[in-house]
Design a protein around this nucleic acid. Structure first.
Length: 292
DNA sequence: TAATAGGGAAGTAGTTCCAA
DNA sequence: TTGGAACTACTTCCCTATTA
């Protein structure tokens, strides 16, 4: 009954339904931006300064849960005022494009969490009273770090417990693209970057390497640009490291994975109680331990 | 002070080839 | 036929990059 709408020709010429059974009703695509200083790495107490989320839903989900068309139905975006180090570094402003004035006039993280919870309740994802999930939704991010690191750190610094609606299921989009790319290796070599004599010194005394140049390819880490390229999508739209632009491009990747029949299910986890070396009492950053 | 994926190096076992 | 060298395929371990 759906075939005339949702099928594509197979290599044998037959029509086949490519819709995969999708257990989740909605996806929250998140790509936070956080404070940073050049050379400090990611063990530093980064504070979230932008909270952008694209809410995606199925256009064509059947009663059995089969679907392939995913679209953005709403967006939430808020800048966040850092409290531990309210002054942004020049490096951070250059990287993210976020200005000091934008964070100065922004609400603090606990306020943003409350506003975002209202956004979720408005869309029927959580209960407005208790904040408990009502529908099945899954968080999506580029790599597992946004929630695993930045949200956990920010909740510690802001002295707020991690809300129940963010402790749920997490899909690392990068990992999904990588898995899809591996499964379809014969069909695409888009992200294979050939490296010849730069990587392998040619030694004519070695018969293994003599003669024709070896066909050695090295898989690069799948940044967002390469994920788009691997899926045959147009290049990144907007400004890289702008949270909302990153989230929108991530949503494009999600939609393409869905269209290609990838089952969108969690593949990452978080540890809400994880501690970093600079963590003192709740909310306390042990500056004496920081390697500035 | 973390988890993870991926690449490179090194080691090992099996196969092939060739001279004695 | 045999022993040794060369080659290939595979596994394991270690290191690096990743995330602002």
């Amino acid at each position: 009954m759906y075939h005339h709408l949702y099928s594509q020709p197979s290599s044998s010429g037959q029509q086949q339904d490519i819709r995969e059974k999708q257990p989740y009703e909605a996806f929250l695509v998140l790509d936070v931006e956080a404070t940073c200083r050049e050379g400090t790495g990611f063990d530093w107490p980064n504070e979230i300064i932008e909270w952008p989320v694209c809410l995606m839903r199925w256009k064509d989900r059947s009663g059995e849960g089969n679907a392939s068309q995913l679209e953005i139905v709403d967006e939430f975006r808020s800048f966040v005022k850092p409290t531990w180090r309210p002054q942004l570094s020049q490096y951070c402003m250059n990287l993210t494009g976020i200005t000091q004035a934008q964070v100065d006039s922004a609400p603090t993280f606990p306020v943003v969490l409350k506003r975002f919870a209202r956004f979720l309740a408005k869309h029927g994802l959580i209960g407005s009273e208790n904040g408990r999930p009502i529908q099945r939704f899954c968080w999506c991010s580029d790599g597992p770090f946004d929630i695993r690191h930045f949200v956990v750190k920010q909740c510690f610094i802001s002295r707020v417990p991690m809300p129940p609606w963010i402790r749920g299921d997490i899909l690392d989009v990068r990992r999904s693209v990588s898995s899809w790319e591996t499964d379809n290796k014969q069909e695409t070599t888009a992200v294979e970057v050939p490296i010849y004599s730069f990587a392998v010194p040619l030694d004519i005394t070695d018969s293994r390497r003599a003669g024709q140049l070896p066909e050695i390819s090295r898989r690069q880490p799948l940044n967002m640009h390469l994920q788009l390229q691997a899926l045959g999508l147009p290049e990144f739209q907007g400004r890289p490291h702008s949270g909302i632009d990153d989230a929108r491009n991530l949503a494009r990747i999600m939609a393409e994975l869905a269209r290609r029949g990838v089952r969108l299910i969690p593949n990452a986890s978080i540890r809400p109680n994880r501690r970093w070396y600079w963590m003192g009492r709740p909310g306390e950053v042990r500056e004496d331990l920081l390697q500035d």
